[in-house]
Amino acid sequence: MAQAAVARENAEEATEVALQTRIKAGATLEDISEMTPRYRDVLVATMAIAADLEIMTLPLDFDAIAFAPSINDRIAIASALQDEMGHAQVMFRMLEDFGFDSYHQVFERDPKNFKTFFLLEFGNLSPIDVGLGHLVGDQAGYITTCDLEQNCSFGPYSRSLRKVNFEENFHVKRGEYMIRHYMQQGPEIRKRVQERMDFWFPLGAEWFGATDDVKSRTDQLHYKIRGNSNDQLRQIWLQRLVPFCEQVGLKVPAHFDSEKGIYVLDYQMPILLNLETMKWDFRTVTWPEKLAQWKKGGPLKLPGLSRMQTELWGQDLW
């Protein structure tokens, strides 16, 4: 009995290794039947998070549409949200083929079980946040999805991200355009942008997850679901964001380290956000403490997702 189990385990291990070798040699999978259970789990987990992140933009962007300053601004943010819902639709559609029921996932699942990121769990306060959301948040998302498009060994997922990335690039450009404009609007608005950037920047930095010394060779990398590690992706984000901020006169807690030849944060991750003052405490904490904060989530998550799962009519509308 025990011998049979060992033999089975060895056989499974051998198929895993064979698959990893094939993938390392550049093979692309096209169908579920080519996957090992472990590959499939890692892929599905990655796609499920991506789908949740896209759908979370509905509650996030709704207020931004409602408080938009003009017809043009309202069109711009509605257009970005339309893109995001298109991305969600593609992601959930793909998950259907893996046995997910997207109606259940979107409309019936307990909001607590959505895997969204901290960055998406705070309401937008003004159009400044819309610009920063694009500049900081969409930028981070775009870097993640570009990596997946370039490297993902599951062909259909990689291909589906072409449209996603084509559109995300516009969101980032829109953010740069907005923030550049606001930074030319005099000291009062510049100050408002700086205050909100102080809030947004660490959220963007932690979008990419734990640092590589804590979490480096993950299954996602083994199976080439993605190509770059958390720190590598964070570095790309810093390379794009920090020079832009310097150019428009925004201060951010990061700089170029000419000795190391890379951008570095001025603080050591992880740090905690004080949810009462909405200010960051830059003292380094432990990863379990940070994970606990992420798990608890930001103030928009549960109400926002619950709103998506309910309907309001009549006097509740106006």
């Binding site: 096209e30 039947s33 593609v90 793909m94 083929d97 259909p156 291909r159 589906s160 072409r162």
Partner: peptide, 12 residues
């Protein structure tokens, strides 16, 4: 070609 596949047409 996809006779045995769960997805008749790949998403993209």
């Amino acid at each position: 070609t996809e006779r045995d596949s769960k997805s008749k047409v790949k998403v993209v």
